[in-house]
């Protein structure tokens, strides 16, 4: 546990309503459980008594005081899942992993838990492994789910996956291509941009694969700064449009050949992307073209 992280989390929530719960949620996100020392620190820093904080930490189901495994498997036990045989699914996980719900394997690989209802009742029984939903699960699927979780549940992150195709984008200001065939990321051409932050300026290359957030850069970036992204061709800073759905930071637009925009978040720790293929100008043009 790093005291600085805890201090930052507490500072982020200072003076807000229900702060204790949000603070504990953030700590849990970071460590996957609530370390004793962290709770003592929260008590000291917020001036609340430890007994109240400990009460909150044990009252809510989202919190765990025991370290959890690297992979979290949650089996939904909502009514709809129950009538569709969810208890049998839990039994099967219990058998295969040698765990009862709430326990963690000795090698800290898996934690098994049951949740009350995930609200995806139409697809039950539902199992969520590391954030990936598996629907209409049968006992015979359990082995497969464990295997998928062990090997990285999303599974679609490798460059060999055919569904992940590369995209070509242009500078929205000068129209030059930003594709860099020489610098490869994930076995594909990368997207070449310049980046500046904290007075440093250098290159950055983003994976051109759809949905990927891989990147390489000249200078290591601290996790939480807003960077300026600019075009290596014309040197101008990209305009900031739209706000990132994940973190609220501004996003810069990179244009697709033929219309549409790939937005990239300008916060170093996030840099998530969003694709919008609607381009108002183009829309108007086609409308008139169609009429003609």
């Amino acid at each position: 546990m790093n005291p600085e992280h805890i201090e930052k989390i507490i500072a982020d929530h200072e003076g807000r309503q229900g702060a204790i719960i949000s603070i504990l949620e953030d700590i849990q996100d970071l460590y996957h459980y609530l370390p004793e020392e962290a709770l003592r620190m929260v008590a000291r820093k917020t001036g609340q008594s430890l007994v109240d904080i400990y009460g909150v930490a044990t009252f809510y189901k989202a919190f765990s005081l025991k370290p959890r495994g690297r992979h979290l498997i949650s089996v939904c036990m909502g009514t709809a899942c129950h009538v569709r045989s969810a208890p049998g699914i839990v039994d099967e996980f219990t058998q295969q992993l040698g765990l009862r719900p709430g326990e963690t394997t000795e090698d800290s690989e898996f934690t098994l838990e049951t949740v009350n209802c995930l609200g995806t009742c139409a697809l039950g029984p539902i199992v969520v492994a590391d954030g990936t939903y598996f629907s209409n699960v049968k006992r015979t699927d359990v082995k497969k789910i464990i295997h998928k979780a062990r090997t990285g549940a999303a599974g679609a992150r490798s460059g060999r996956d055919e569904r992940l195709f590369p995209v070509d984008v242009l500078c929205p200001l000068c129209g030059r291509t930003l594709t860099d065939a020489h610098h490869q990321i994930e076995n594909n051409s990368s997207i070449a941009l310049d980046v500046s932050f904290d007075g440093k300026k250098g290159w950055i290359r983003l994976s051109s694969l759809y949905g990927s957030t891989c990147r390489e850069s000249e200078h290591e970036m601290p996790p939480d700064v807003l960077v300026s992204l600019s075009c290596p061709g014309c040197g101008r800073n990209f305009p900031e449009k739209l706000n990132c759905i994940e973190c609220g930071a501004p996003m810069v637009p990179l244009e697709f050949q033929g219309g549409g925009v790939l937005y990239v978040c300008a916060r170093s720790g996030c840099m998530s992307r969003r694709i919008s293929l609607d381009v108002p100008v183009l829309r108007a043009e086609t409308a008139s073209a169609r009429q003609a």
């Binding site: 007994v51 109240d52 400990y54 044990t58 009252f59």
Partner: peptide
Amino acid sequence: AKAIGFRGRGTERSVGTPFDIQSDV
């Protein structure tokens, strides 16, 4: 003092000190 309090909920609820060790308050 706030040395003891409730922990957990439902059938798991109990009274005691944080972490079940003697409270320094």
